[in-house]
Computed example of a mutant assay.
Amino acid sequence: MDTAISRASDDDLIQLVTAEGTRTEPSEFTGLVEDITTDKLRDLYEDLIVVRRIDAEATALQRQGELGLWAPLLGQEAAQVGSARALHPDDFVFGSYREHGVAYCRGVDPTEMLRFWRGSTQSGWNPYEYNMTTPAIIVGSQALHATGYGLGIKFDGADGAVITYFGDGATSQGDISEAFGFAASFNAPVVFFCQNNQWAISEPVTLQTHITIAERGRGFGVPALRVDGNDVLAVLAATRMALTRAREGSGPMLIEAVTYRMGPHTTSDDPTRYRSAAVDDEWKKKDPIDRIERLLDAEGAMDDALRARVKDRADWTAAELRRGCLGTVEPTAMSVFDNVYADPHPLIAEERDAYATYLAGFEGAQS
């Protein structure tokens, strides 16, 4: 394992499947996915398709006025699916606001993903039910939370691990630097997973840093790998390595998954104002789904039955997503006082009564 880390220290991208859908020469990382049979590769392909469909349906719902906002993940499916499928059930995930694919792989009902963006809830889902936090809007804050959770694992003498996701833009935040330093100093079992999608809203990663993001982590004493983020097998292998190190007590690790945000930063963004179509076209040739389709086809594992199965699953998921979103019970003005404390609290009761009286005054004015 340490040999693989040192060999990757020159920041060559770890890649197991090329953009053309052919397998690369065997390496230390190949052995980490030897258990991925043809059937399991088909399952990963299904994950990629379904996650992209969830994203497309949610984007459409936002455009139709059913969601206040959405952070698309188009192009980043392999980075999310590959890393999420490396996790054990008891590992804990601290995501940002774009890890819809990770949430899907953790078993989160897609409808629960939308309630936050629809304004139907103050959070989303129960984090302890899926061992994954709800979206973190404050950029980079989740890395500190993950580091603290990792220290708790260490102090408890447990053998679990924690993973936290963030984008390249978050690495310019102080929170990420503090998390790197703290995790390295205390040997916390944390995997820092950076989805370097090349853009922090309208600012390219080349403006944020003149070195790789992996090097930034190493500067704090955190070993790091750079992986082809559009190669689901390479991401799976790298994440398995990092999680194994964490569970064994070898401390934190940073994975820089080099990928590309094909769409806008959020649905309020227009990437055509700052990004050329030529760059988009170049990255489309590296599409993570096309890559696995080509691999399956080359290995005689792609057929009409698989295509039909995956399409049915994606269609069903999209329909359930839309049905659940439109059927969500909207919160009332008074629901802001719900779930503030686990038990009844006199201050909340007082504030609820005062606010109810305030709202009633408007009703009287209208009459």
Rank of each mutant, 00 (worst) to 15 (best):
A278G: 06
C194N: 12
D287A: 04
R247K: 13
I211Y: 07
V205M: 13
A242D: 08
D269E: 10
V205K: 00
G251M: 11
A234H: 04
W199Y: 15
R240D: 02
L207A: 14
L233P: 03
I201V: 15
K284A: 05
V258R: 07
P204F: 09
I201A: 06
I289C: 10
P271L: 05
Q198P: 02
T272C: 01
R291L: 05
A246T: 03
A277E: 15
S202D: 14
T259P: 04
Y260W: 11
F193I: 01
P252E: 08
I255D: 05
F192D: 09
R218A: 09
P223F: 06
W283Y: 15
W283D: 07
T239V: 10
E248G: 00
D281L: 10
E282N: 01
G263H: 15
T239L: 04
V279S: 06
T239H: 05
L207R: 13
N196F: 08
P252V: 07
G251S: 12
S250W: 12
P288I: 09
P264I: 01
Y274G: 11
A234R: 07
V258E: 14
E256H: 04
E282V: 05
R218G: 08
K286G: 00
C194R: 04
A224D: 06
I289M: 09
T212A: 12
W199S: 12
E282S: 13
V227M: 06
N196Q: 07
T267I: 02
L254M: 05
I211Q: 11
Q195W: 01
E203G: 00
N197W: 10
K285A: 15
V227C: 03
E215K: 15
L207S: 14
R247L: 11
V227G: 07
T266M: 06
G221P: 08
R275F: 09
N196C: 11
K286Q: 14
M241H: 13
E256Q: 10
L207V: 14
A257F: 11
V279T: 14
Y274R: 04
R261F: 12
R261T: 08
T272M: 01
R245I: 01
K285I: 02
H210R: 15
M253T: 13
P252H: 03
A237P: 08
P252L: 10
A224G: 04
R247V: 11
F192Y: 12
G249Y: 04
I289P: 08
K284L: 14
I201N: 07
R226D: 01
L225V: 08
R275M: 03
G221T: 05
D290M: 11
R291E: 09
F220Y: 15
P264C: 02
V232H: 08
T266H: 14
E282F: 07
S250I: 00
A278Q: 14
A257H: 05
T206I: 02
A237C: 09
E282A: 15
T244D: 15
K285R: 15
T209C: 13
H210F: 00
P288L: 04
P288Q: 08
D280W: 09
D280A: 06
R245H: 13
T239G: 05
V205Y: 08
P223R: 02
